[in-house]
């Protein structure tokens, strides 16, 4: 139940007008991206504000083919799925260990994990690059999967552990009396109850890894192995004079994100803001 700030009608009207102006600032760039994608490059240069004169998908098809997007889509999907599986799998196991079990060094290891929440990516990027270079992992998908997973892990462990901590210990007591092993309790009792927090962790991991730019920018120089983000960077450098083609490529990438956002808006908002509200 949310509270509200009751205000007189004059205030409401002014607020509504300002919000409408802000809305325009948000909608116009996106609208322009789609409308310009249906114009020719010459039309855009001549008059950037004009509207398309016809429904024309040529630029979208050209961008898809010339940027070899099908391939880079699949690479991004492989990277994102692998990272998400690694994060959700290992973080839920670790959170279970930290929250419900007891072993030597439990508290200090957990504190060691939380350290990762404050470390910037740049603190380990140089060392990791040289390390990957010496073991031959540079220019492989692992060079993106592993660091994106490692970055997501501290917050994932923290959120899932906090959730496990809130569950009463009576949950596993009867199973223990029946002689169930800790792993049985983890996967058939604790994990199924934790679905909401697992969904949150999955959401922010998928979005962060899918959108990641700096790590593949540094780690993958092989054209065929680039995920969508950095392949688009190279593509738009190569076609820097063809505005219509470039905007169409952006529209192709943005569209599925908008569809997913419209379908799963609440889940996505909860997932992305979870990091900030951790306290």
């Amino acid at each position: 139940m949310s509270t509200e700030a009751r205000s007189p009608i004059v205030v409401r009207t002014i607020v509504w007008a300002i919000m409408a102006v802000v809305l325009v600032i948000y909608v116009v760039p996106i609208f322009w991206m789609y409308s310009s994608s249906m114009r020719t490059n010459g039309e855009i240069i001549l008059n950037p504000i004009g509207l398309p004169t016809r429904i024309d998908f040529t630029n979208f098809i050209d961008a898809w083919q010339m940027a070899n997007m099908g391939r880079h889509f699949i690479i991004s999907i492989v990277i994102t799925l692998s990272s998400t599986l690694l994060v959700v799998g290992s973080a839920s196991l670790a959170a279970y260990g930290f929250s419900r079990l007891n072993f030597a060094g439990r508290k200090s290891l957990y504190a060691f994990f939380l350290l990762g929440l404050i470390l910037p990516v740049q603190s380990f990027l140089v060392g990791l690059f040289v390390l990957f270079r010496s073991v031959g992992l540079l220019n492989s998908l692992w060079a993106v999967i592993l660091p994106t997973s490692a970055i997501a892990l501290p917050l994932a462990v923290l959120l899932i552990k906090n959730y496990f901590d809130s569950l009463p210990s009576s949950i596993e007591e009867s199973a223990e009396i029946d002689g169930a092993s800790t792993f049985t309790i983890y996967h058939s009792i604790i994990l199924p109850i934790a679905t909401p927090i697992i969904a949150t962790v999955t959401t922010f991991t998928i979005i962060n890894v899918w959108n990641e730019f700096m790590i593949p920018f540094v780690m993958i120089q092989t054209t065929e192995l680039r995920p969508l983000t950095t392949s688009l960077y190279v593509f738009s450098t190569r076609h820097s004079a063809n505005y219509a083609l470039r905007l169409a490529a952006l529209a192709v990438i943005a569209s599925p994100m908008f569809v997913v956002y419209i379908l799963l808006q609440r889940q996505i908002q909860r997932g992305i803001t979870a990091g900030a509200i951790k306290g």
Binding site: F124, V126, L131
Partner: peptide, 10 residues
Amino acid sequence: LVMIFPIGFT
């Protein structure tokens, strides 16, 4: 291995 160890490296 991926985060803490490379910080020491750096």
